[in-house]
Amino acid sequence: MNHTFETIYEKESDAIFRFCLVRVSSREQSLDITQETFLRLWQSLKKGEDIQNSRAFLFTIAHRLVIDWYRKKKSLSWDKIFSKDDKEIDVVDEKTTEINLSTSAEGRYLMDKINELSPSYRDPVYLRYGEDLSPPEIGEILGISTNAASVRINRGLEELRKKYLSR
């Protein structure tokens, strides 16, 4: 089991990290979510669960953890707004770009534009072109049909082109 996990980890850890980073735009947070994602995989393997597609499994877990992270962050933001604390309010939303990337400006710009896409298009587009996942795999991860995934990919790409080329 250790060997299986190690193999999967070597193959997928960067992709999961990258996926989280595009979404949360914070390296530390991305590392935390990546760690939690693989911890879930480790526990499932230890229980003897039969995981047919480890890639889809990991992206599904990561996707849900990112959503949970946003929910916690937003509720925390509202608490800060309504508190009498004099500290500076840090309103976090999905477009916060606290990016600490060792990548080119072009890459960072594209990530910004992906994050500006409609929520239903953002993940399908990234998973398709950023991680080379197939529409069936994307459908499985996001809990939608293969057809729906294909439609969102195409529409998302059109929208991304407009945004990217509008500069």
């Binding site: 980890y9 590392l31 990548t103 072109y129 990217y164």
Partner: peptide
């Protein structure tokens, strides 16, 4: 656009980060 995507694909964890996460799990 294609070049930008390739840039994103280069994003990775550092060796230290990768080792740290693995050992923790």
């Amino acid at each position: 656009l294609q070049n930008s995507i390739e840039e994103i694909k280069k994003i990775k964890m550092t060796a230290l980060e990768k080792k740290r996460v693995f050992e923790y799990v």
